[in-house]
Simulated scan of single mutants.
Amino acid sequence: MSSPKYIRYHGLLLPPSAHSMESLEFAQNFSVEDTDVFAVTYPKSGTIWMQEILPLVLSGGDLTPIQTIPNWDRVPWLEEKRLALIVDQLASPRALVTHFPYHLMPPSFLTSKAKVIYVMRNPKDIVVSSYYFHQMAQFLEDPGTFDEFMEKFLEGRVLFGKWTDHVKSWRHAELGDRIMYITYEEMVQDLPAVLRRISDFLGRNLSEDTIHKIAEHCSFKTMKANSMSNFSLVPKLYMDSDKSPFLRKGVAGDWKNHFNSEQLARFTSVIYKELEGESFSLPWSLD
């Protein structure tokens, strides 16, 4: 794809509205601290949700960050232009998000004790969510038909490449107890249970009252109404919410409303083939 809408970085397609060669170099030279916490996702897998959850867990339930700071500044992307502008304002322990595969993380990350929460989502729901996002994000290519976009997704001609490559890179990351794996579906099903796991993983020992308070403020309904979290502050020039809201549904299983039987058969056969022989199993069936 030679579209001017994207820049290429180690074979990955990135939108220049948020990324530049300077921001990617800044990410590579970024000095990761032992207390840093990274939420790692493939795009449309729960990134915005983690930008809401992490400040609340790390602050013991203090609502100030999520009510006063836009999500892209409270938990910035490692690879985006914005980080260099606000990095000095981040209080320790710092929370960051990234879509990078494991092998593109900065050298200082590998030698640090920084922790990672890797969020996986059913790729069938990712492709649906991404399809709608491409319709409303003016800085991305028009997705074409759902069938055309699904093919692009399977071939990795989308932001941050193939989903299977991303998952494999992080499932094979040798980080020991520095990494925990959760799924978007678990968060939808029982957010307090996931918050307890995150709290334990980050050594926060939050009370049940605090867990439930955080869960309430991280509900889809609350986030959709929070201007610091719903991307309504982004000019229409970049995101046209009339075409599709940024926070669209926040559910698991919406793919059933979009895939026909032929698309489903093709999608699952390609994904399963690319994960053939892997030592990890997927947390959900793709059929």
Rank of each mutant, 00 (worst) to 15 (best):
N122R: 11
I126H: 04
Y42S: 04
S112I: 08
A27D: 02
E33T: 11
L63M: 14
D88Y: 01
E52N: 15
I126R: 03
L63D: 10
Q51E: 14
I53A: 03
A84I: 14
P76R: 01
T98Y: 02
I48C: 13
R121I: 03
G60M: 09
V97Y: 00
Q89L: 08
Y42L: 05
S20I: 02
V57D: 07
D34A: 05
A95C: 09
T98S: 15
D88I: 08
V87L: 07
Q89H: 13
F100L: 14
L24I: 00
S45G: 01
Y42C: 05
L78A: 04
H99Q: 03
L104Q: 09
P43T: 08
V87F: 05
P101M: 11
T111I: 12
P76Y: 00
T47I: 03
F30V: 05
S108T: 15
D36K: 02
N29I: 03
E25H: 01
V127Q: 04
P43G: 09
V57R: 14
V57H: 11
M105P: 06
P70C: 04
H19A: 03
S20M: 00
H19G: 00
I66F: 06
Q51N: 05
P55N: 07
I69G: 07
Y102N: 09
L90Y: 01
A114G: 01
L63G: 10
V127A: 03
P101L: 10
Y118G: 06
H103F: 13
L110H: 15
L85N: 13
T68G: 08
W72V: 15
D62C: 12
V119K: 12
P70I: 05
T64C: 02
W49N: 10
K124E: 08
F30E: 06
G61L: 12
S112E: 02
P70A: 09
L85Y: 09
N122C: 12
N29K: 15
L78P: 04
F26Y: 15
F100M: 09
W49I: 11
T41E: 03
M105T: 14
P101Y: 03
P107D: 13
T41R: 03
A95H: 01
P123L: 09
A18M: 14
E80Q: 13
M120A: 12
A84D: 01
G46P: 06
V75T: 15
P106V: 14
S92V: 14
I86K: 00
A84H: 10
D62R: 12
V37H: 13
I117H: 07
E52T: 15
S20K: 00
L24T: 01
K113N: 14
Q89A: 07
L85D: 11
H99C: 02
V32L: 06
P107R: 13
Y102E: 05
P65Q: 06
G61S: 05
L83A: 04
H103W: 11
V40C: 10
I126W: 10
V32Q: 01
K115F: 03
